[in-house]
Design a protein around this nucleic acid. Sequence first.
DNA 1: GACTCTATCTCGGTA
DNA 2: TACCGAGGTAGAGTC
Lengths: 219, 219
Amino acid sequence: MRLVIARCVVDYVGRLSAHLPDAVRLIMVKSDGCVAVHADGGAYKPLNWMNAPNCFKDEGDTWAITNTKGEQLQISFTEVISDKTYELGSDPGLQKDGVEAHLQELLAGAPEALGEGFKLIRREHQTEIGPVDLLCTDAEGQTVAVEVKRRGEMDSVEQLSRYLEFLQHDQLIAPVRGMLVAQEFKQQAKTLAQRRNIEWRVVDYDDLRGMEQAQSRLF
Amino acid sequence: MRLVIARCVVDYVGRLSAHLPDAVRLIMVKSDGCVAVHADGGAYKPLNWMNAPNCFKDEGDTWAITNTKGEQLQISFTEVISDKTYELGSDPGLQKDGVEAHLQELLAGAPEALGEGFKLIRREHQTEIGPVDLLCTDAEGQTVAVEVKRRGEMDSVEQLSRYLEFLQHDQLIAPVRGMLVAQEFKQQAKTLAQRRNIEWRVVDYDDLRGMEQAQSRLF
DNA sequence: GACTCTATCTCGGTA
DNA sequence: TACCGAGGTAGAGTC
């Protein structure tokens, strides 16, 4: 990784045009070739950047970095204060826990957490406008389309509404109930769900984990 | 700005849990107190971070950074390779050109780009649930609610649908046509728009600029 | 402070 | 490759 502290002017032309007047900044060049220009503030997002893969041209006091789509980042240096390169080696990578995918996985393994007699038909059921997280049947054998979220907000209700709109026209599946499942809900989401005749249910991540472990001990 | 190159283990506990095994990384601390942990690859997004404002506790070989929501980032150093601080000064900031606001501006100045005989009634027409980008009349004098986007996606169709729902109940305005305008559209957005009886139209940014310039030369 | 919407979103998955 | 959806989305603007 190359770290350059320098006074510079930066221009980006691509999906939009952006210009940075002359000032001292950090320019980070990673070993995969991506470049980021950071100011000393403003969270982790750089002011300007160019992802890998790209073509890097060093013209002395100006760098011209172009990607395959023709977008270009140009950095003109007026004063280089520091220029150092470090060997970092490869990174073992980030391990995440507690995202939506895990919640969906746990629910697929324990559909009865959604309601008594619930059985899983399939995960990621494809429709014309995207995949429904879980397709189940309830105790009466009626189909239930389930949308799983970490937090239930308005757009979750709309997403499920869209799916239902299409599923109700699928003769193999209709009629369908809609159910929104999340660890917490915003009041607005509950209100909208009720108006749309969509059920909502709070599930607890740790409880589900417990159920899964209890089940795995049974077999 | 403080730049530390170090072998370290990182843990984040907050909205999710994330763990980084021991490896050499760059830790960037900006003057506003935000912290970012970068690997030597993977675009500009850090592996882990904590935005400002936060409480930074240096316990020697471990940093504990906590924000007001109780989320915590913990960095344990096993070997510090470099630790340097630079004065960057304040940044004049980024100047952008070519975002949605400009597209809306150009269309407001050239409504005929939306269809023959189109005339602008007003921009940012307020409804109970938010502003409609452009309100126009078509050649027949019927009102058209126009939503402007850089890219037309499903969310855009939903947004316009919501507005139309309210506008159709406004006796001064109804009946209203809905039109989605963008530089490009996703297929699913087109499908959903068609189902909702919403028109969609591709416009070209450079063409619009040309129209505007041609018009300004006329007067 | 809460809500809404944009973003050179980024990033990972999948067809 | 393109498309789709999640995100510790972040960040800006509005109310």
